[in-house]
């Protein structure tokens, strides 16, 4: 990343936000209407990726009850799983879980039942924190939420055989 290429590097969060903005994707907001959602800003996506706004735009199409962590956005705390902490595993695991206490408390304070995060490190870390600190939340990526909430046009569904291919 960061070099001059012939191509542009884009995070999927930005891409998804584009699709929703352009009306290329439609979401059924009622799917998560009963849930309170919060969002974990991954360091590489928000502070170091500039995608915090795009993520919140997606959330606007997805969640009825959304609560920010404190602090949030560019100022959000690291979950503790970054910088290679997850794959280091072994003796580093205990340090990682301990350092996640800040994140766990942030999440608990929101009262959320779903923590959304578009980063595999955060995802794995918060799932571990969920067990370690008994948060009782669901950790989901946007993709996972889309799987449930995307509105699929009837003609694309499996019952009909004659599809127009690309």
């Amino acid at each position: 990343m960061g070099r001059d290429h012939k191509f542009q590097v884009v995070h999927s969060v930005t891409l998804f936000a584009e699709y929703l903005r352009e009306g290329r994707l439609k979401l059924d907001k009622s799917v998560f209407a009963e849930e309170r959602c919060t969002y974990q800003d991954p360091c590489n996506v928000s502070r170091n990726g500039g995608c915090g706004k795009d993520a919140r735009e997606i959330i606007g199409y997805l969640c009825e009850d959304f609560v920010e962590m404190e602090p949030y956005g560019d100022y959000n705390f690291c979950c503790g799983g970054g910088g290679g902490a997850i794959p280091m595993a072994g003796p580093f695991r205990e340090r990682r879980l301990r350092s996640g206490k800040v994140k766990a408390e942030q999440i608990r304070a929101t009262g959320a039942s779903i923590c959304i995060t578009p980063c595999h490190n955060c995802y794995d870390q918060i799932r571990d924190l969920n067990k370690e600190y008994e948060l009782g939340i669901k950790v989901l990526s946007f993709k996972e939420m889309f799987e449930e909430a995307l509105i699929i046009p009837e003609e694309l569904k499996a019952q009909e055989e004659d599809e127009d291919e690309e």
Partner: peptide, 8 residues
């Protein structure tokens, strides 16, 4: 460095 990542 932060600016190119659109962060203050």
């Amino acid at each position: 460095e932060f600016g190119r990542r659109r962060a203050p």
